[in-house]
Amino acid sequence: MSDELVFYTNPMSRGRIVRWMLEEVGQPYRTELLEFGTTMKAPAYLAINPMGKVPTIRHGETVVTEAAAICAYLADAFPQANLAPAPGSRERGPYYRWLFFGAGPVESAISNKALGFQVPPERTGTIGYGSLESVLNALENALSKGDYLVGDRFTAADLYVGAQIGWGMQFGSIEKRPVFERYAARINSRPAAIRARQIDDALLPKK
């Protein structure tokens, strides 16, 4: 079985998160650029990801979709990159907690904010994230305790959650709290983050 690592993406998508993760991992990979509404919906790609969206990776015969799942998979597939606490370690639980907090409450809350939807105060109990304010307060509290979400080092949880914070502040769905700004500046200055931005920016349509 070939262990080739193939990355399906578009530079104007959440694929930018996975590009950053791939650059952090440091393993060779091949990029397949797809276009919205055409090659993403073509039979060849739908056979790989029936949702017809990006990002997706194929590692040998293993296909993984959803940005958070891809980050978690890559961290475990390439442990030498040191992007996840060891299975069974004391920090593994908090790592899962914040990675999936990003994929669940954070993603849902900021997506609803971007679409102009606000949960009525009397209905917050029916929504998994409660309210955007409670999500941001939880993040602020966690990030006020140290430089990173888990222990004293950068992990895939920081990459995924941090990317969401950065985008949210850029587009107005997350308020620019000082803790968030310091955190985003810290992780976005990583060499892999800079390389990933440069690669994807070069692939953007020319104006």
Rank of each mutant, 00 (worst) to 15 (best):
G116S: 07
D152Y: 07
F171H: 07
S144T: 03
P121N: 05
S134N: 06
V161Q: 03
P79F: 08
I174N: 02
A193I: 07
A142I: 08
F171G: 02
G168E: 00
A192Y: 01
A75S: 02
Y148M: 09
V106Q: 11
I174A: 02
A142E: 14
F154S: 10
G88L: 02
A192S: 14
Y129H: 08
A142W: 06
G116P: 00
K145W: 05
A75Q: 01
V119A: 13
D147Q: 10
R97D: 09
Y160C: 08
P120Q: 13
V135G: 05
V150R: 11
Y148F: 14
I127F: 15
P94E: 07
F180Q: 00
M169V: 04
A157V: 01
A192D: 01
A138Q: 14
P120S: 14
D76F: 09
Y160I: 09
S111W: 11
A72C: 14
Y73P: 06
A157E: 00
G116I: 09
V135A: 04
R186G: 07
G116A: 06
Y148K: 11
F78W: 06
R92W: 04
P85Y: 09
G146S: 13
K145C: 11
S173M: 13
F117T: 11
R90D: 11
D147F: 03
E133V: 09
A184R: 14
G102F: 06
V161M: 00
S144H: 03
W98C: 04
F171D: 00
L115C: 12
G146C: 08
F154G: 13
S111N: 07
A81Y: 00
A157R: 03
A109G: 03
S111H: 13
T155N: 01
G172T: 01
G88A: 07
W98Q: 09
R153Q: 15
R97V: 07
S108P: 11
F171Y: 13
E140W: 01
R97W: 07
F100K: 04
A75Y: 10
D158P: 03
V150Q: 10
F100R: 06
G125T: 04
Y148T: 01
A138I: 00
P79Q: 08
N188F: 11
F101A: 00
G162W: 08
E181T: 05
P79E: 10
W98E: 05
V179P: 08
A114Y: 13
S89G: 05
A192T: 04
A163H: 14
A156T: 14
L149G: 03
G88V: 01
S111Q: 08
Y96P: 00
Y148D: 06
A142D: 10
F171K: 06
R190D: 01
A77Q: 10
A114L: 14
N141G: 12
A75T: 05
V150W: 10
G88C: 04
L139N: 06
E140T: 00
I110G: 02
L149N: 10
M169P: 06
V150A: 13
Q118W: 07
W98R: 08
N188V: 01
E133A: 13
Q170N: 15
N112D: 15
R97Y: 06
E140V: 00
W98S: 11
L149R: 12
R92S: 08
V179Y: 00
T126W: 14
F78D: 05
G104S: 14
S131T: 15
Q80V: 13
Y73E: 01
